[in-house]
């Protein structure tokens, strides 16, 4: 055996930086998330299954109930919501991988490394957001099937909104996952946090004309402010008659004031920052 690891007698190869915030580190954590994702094709399929169920099965079921009187197909209405739902569930479930990392010990390998918690969360968020954005964009393939028209600029805008939303939700997921120490907790999060978030976001039904308590719940839901811009950019290119846009406004209204799209995006970005800081904080405590 001729192999030899350079000993400590050599000129110190380890940089003295402590808690270095390196882009190399972020890139590596990001790469790991992607490798793991691509290595489990079943995950890609399963995370598409639920949105497709909502889009087609629920779409046709409810669509026939509502009828054509509204001037808009329910499929068309729900399509942006289903894209948002795909992004949200993929982002949260990939952030939850922190629980797996803890269960299988790998979290320790990362926590004892001379890297900052911020870099760790950055890598996780970047990885989860990339996967979620890709998964959400994949849903756009089904747009022609439900009669949704897409243009190139629209797709770009959708990807941008998806990415912002994915970062917010991955960070949210990491901050949750850092507190979960057992596998069962994962199911709890998915059922008690993710599903209500999706239902209360306006992804599946319009947010106007709700009873006051439901209106309040939807307005404190971070996801609401990402679903609205997504629906807005898609609706903009559908050539809807004015009556439809009036009946199904895409802007979130708070106290009768309709938020412009930039404000909704700003709110999403604000949520992303808060969740990010929260994730760094809870992960620091995790060691």
């Amino acid at each position: 055996m001729t192999a030899q690891l350079s000993g400590r007698t050599e000129a110190a190869p380890t940089p003295a930086r402590s808690s270095a915030f390196g882009f190399g580190t972020i890139g590596m954590i990001w790469e790991r998330e992607l490798i793991r994702y691509l290595r489990t094709p079943s995950r890609i399929v399963t995370s598409l299954a639920q949105p497709l169920l909502f889009l087609f099965v629920l779409g046709y079921g409810i669509g026939s109930f509502i009828g054509a009187g509204s001037g808009i197909d329910f499929h068309t209405f729900v399509f942006p919501g289903v894209v948002a739902m795909t992004v949200a569930s993929t982002a949260i479930s990939s952030a939850i991988s922190v629980v797996w990392d803890r269960e299988f010990g790998f979290l320790r390998e990362m926590l004892v490394a001379p890297i900052s918690r911020t870099a760790l969360v950055c890598g996780k968020a970047a990885g989860g957001a990339t996967i979620a954005t890709a998964q959400g964009t994949l849903m756009l393939v089904f747009a022609p099937l439900v009669g949704v028209r897409l243009t190139f600029p629209t797709v770009l805008a959708v990807i941008g909104i998806e990415a912002l939303m994915a970062i917010a939700l991955t960070a949210f997921g990491v901050s949750l996952a850092s507190r979960i120490t057992r596998m069962e907790g994962f199911q709890v999060v998915m059922q008690l946090v993710l599903l209500p978030m999706i239902f209360l976001s306006g992804a599946l039904f319009p947010l106007n004309g709700l009873p006051w308590w439901l209106a309040v719940l939807t307005r404190i839901n971070p996801l609401t402010y990402a679903v609205a811009p997504l629906r807005d950019v898609i609706f903009r290119v559908q050539n809807f008659p004015a009556s439809v846009l009036e009946r199904f406004p895409t802007d979130v209204t708070i106290f009768g004031f309709a938020l412009p799209t930039w404000a909704e995006l700003a709110i999403t970005a604000a949520f992303a920052s808060v969740f990010f800081l929260l994730a760094v904080k809870t992960l620091s405590r995790a060691s």
């Binding site: 380890t14 190399g24 890139g27 790991r32 010990g105 390998e109 990362m110």
Partner: peptide, 28 residues
Amino acid sequence: IVFQETTLDKQLTAEENLRFHAVLYHVP
């Protein structure tokens, strides 16, 4: 550090596990 319980990522290859570690520990 080698902990009592394993801290490898089983979904990665041996080489990937080591490469990950090398980056985390700032090996040039």
